[in-house]
Amino acid sequence: MAQPARPAPPKQPPPDVVEAPTTRLAWILGWVVSPLLFFGGIFLGGVYVGANHPDGWIASVVLLFTGLFG
């Protein structure tokens, strides 16, 4: 048996949503500094491993790949 059509609930006015203003500093921190730190840290970690553990398996694998494509 089909349900009777129910009237649509009254539309409520949308709440006033006020977004916090994005300052320049926050933008720089979020889009420049953080990615730089993140990716730079990964790169520097690789540099440290390559310099201090040249005979390890990580360096061996990397050198193998670079030897294939280099």
Binding site: I42, G46, G50, I58, V62
Partner: peptide, 11 residues
């Protein structure tokens, strides 16, 4: 990226 760092550090 990590691998390029390893290669750079090794070289």
């Amino acid at each position: 990226l990590f691998g390029s760092g390893v290669h750079c550090g090794h070289a």
